[in-house]
Design a protein around this nucleic acid. Structure first.
Length: 474
RNA sequence: CGCGGGGUAGAGCAGUUGGCAGCUCGUCAGGCCCAUAACCUGAAGGUCGUCGGUUCGAAUCCGACCCCCGCAACCA
């Protein structure tokens, strides 16, 4: 029995969860379920990233203690488990004492390896934006949003991580493992970024300015930069460092992340692992973004969609279906209420829902004997293979092709015109196929699949309940 | 000439090695009546971004150009 470790990134906790993170975690969930179905032992990790400047500020703005603020928002994220029917095994919070201790040990190992040093850190700071600005963001030396305002120069001593030292080893990693980062274009992106040369980056902040972070070991005047701390969760979640048996049983793991996370996950984190003497990740899959009506979701546009708004109305599986089947595997995908409704009506209500209704009613009418899934059916093997290669759209598409095929056969054979015995003989193989396909469907739409499997697992006493009610009735 | 991705039917996409342009949705017409006014069949709809080249043959290979979108360091 193989072991499979998958983890999402830890979403930063300065806002409520949105559809983009829902995409990431539903995909991770599908993959975790696929591996469990295939008999693998699975550890599925997620959680929240709670340190850093933005959380600190947000809490102050709300006149709350940072920890209280985090406790409150962490709940919104852990509630996703029920909201989206997720099967994670572990929910880690970066304020968890074990994680903080692990992060400090990780720091010590990088330091022992000579990769952490202290240096002056200079950066321009725009008071108008209240943000640090890089040279490339400036226009004529001024912030484009506040051109009348002089930039402040921040000059403080921080700890730096010797990223520059790992350029060649990272390139070797990218060159020898063609599927280390998927889709391939993302690997290319990070490769060419690395080829341009890597600079060391600062991994601490003055605790007098930002007290909300993990203390740097042996220097109480500094806290760790939030990235350094957050990335370590992927192994602290496994009990690293003290539970080395558990750690080596599961690591290296598979990571899934949004495209804004390419560099931290595929570059910084990998260099950090090398520095600490640990194996690189097994594979990293990069998601696109979900746009809303063609526009980027953003607070200023006020077009941020949360998963709960959709599940409340359409149900969990409708949202899971949209994310897994309708959002492009390798690119950005769009959400719009019109499109969502269209897909709901066409694929779910008129598609699977109606097919189940047709076959369910006929089974009930003819007192059909129970039918159980063949676990190792042809469709299953195809779906699992596609999924292992991160082809979510195609994998779920294969199942829907089967549903369409069954609708066609049913119309051609017209079992409702047959006598009882003949009808039973006609229906049995059709329902067997629906049941087999539903077994595969447990990966994607666990709730609906369970309803179908349950209905046919005994002789029906009643007509089937609608799986996906038409919108007029919602 | 910074690096990369992309431009295929009204919409969203697929087209592995060049060989009759496909899928889903939507639209229109017909059929069916088991089913959630659902299902099935058929039709309309495309200069495959533009121009040139290679070839018996190009969405696919080559060249030039136009347009869109990422990335170009610490944004958590």
């Amino acid at each position: 029995m193989a072991k499979f470790y998958i983890t999402t990134t830890l979403p930063y906790i300065n806002a409520e969860p949105h559809l983009g993170f829902a995409l990431e975690i539903v995909r991770a969930d599908a993959l975790a379920r696929a591996h469990r179905l295939a008999g693998d032992e699975v550890f599925f990790n997620t959680g929240v990233d709670e340190h850093g400047l933005k959380v600190w500020r947000k809490a102050r703005e709300l006149k709350m203690e940072p920890q209280d603020y985090c406790d409150q928002l962490a709940l919104s994220f852990s509630n996703l488990k029920d909201l989206l029917n997720l099967s994670w095994d572990n929910f880690i919070r970066t304020t968890d004492p074990h994680h903080e201790a692990a992060t400090q040990e990780f720091w010590r190992r990088c330091a022992a390896n000579g990769d952490i040093y202290k240096q002056h850190y200079q950066v321009k700071y725009c008071v108008g934006c209240e943000m640090e600005k890089t040279e490339s963001e400036l226009v004529n030396g001024f912030c484009p949003l506040h051109p009348g305002q002089e930039l402040e120069l921040i000059d403080e001593e921080n700890y730096f991580f010797r990223l520059s030292r790992y350029q060649n080893r990272l390139l070797e990693l990218y060159n020898t493992r063609a599927d280390f980062v998927l889709p391939a274009a993302r690997l290319q992106e990070i490769k060419s970024f690395t080829l341009r040369g890597l600079q060391d980056f600062s991994i601490s902040r003055l605790s007098s300015k930002l007290p909300w972070g993990v203390p740097v070991p042996g220097d109480s005047s500094q806290v760790m930069y939030v990235w350094f701390d957050a990335l370590v969760n992927y192994i602290s979640a496994l009990g690293w460092p003290e539970d080395s048996d558990n750690f080596s049983a599961w690591w290296p793991g598979v990571q899934i992340a949004g495209k804004d996370n390419l560099r931290p996950q595929a570059l910084m984190w990998q260099a950090m692992l090398m520095s600490a003497g640990l194996e690189p990740s097994r594979q990293i899959f990069i998601d696109g973004f979900i746009t809303a009506g063609g526009q980027k979701m953003s607070k200023s546009l006020g077009n941020i969609i949360g998963p709960q708004e959709l599940t409340k109305y359409f149900g969990i599986d409708a949202v899971r279906y949209y994310l897994l089947a309708q959002v492009n595997d390798n690119d950005d995908g769009d959400y719009s209420p019109e499109r969502f409704k269209e897909v709901y009506e066409a694929d779910l209500a008129n598609g699977l829902g109606n097919l189940f209704s047709r076959l369910g009613n006929l089974a009930w009418r003819h007192n059909l004997a129970p039918i159980y899934p063949h676990k190792d059916n042809e469709l299953y093997n195809k779906v699992i293979q596609l999924l292992y290669n991160w082809h979510f759209n195609q994998a779920i598409g294969e199942i829907w092709s089967k549903f369409r095929e069954l609708d066609k056969i049913l119309t051609q054979e017209e079992p409702w015109k047959m006598k009882a015995e003949e009808a039973q003989a006609c229906l049995k193989p059709l329902i067997q196929q629906l049941v087999d396909a539903s077994y595969c469907l447990t990966i994607f739409l666990p709730q609906s699949a369970a309803k179908i499997l349950d209905f046919f697992s005994h002789t029906a006493h009643d007509k089937p309940e609608p799986l996906f009610p038409r919108l007029n009735y919602l």
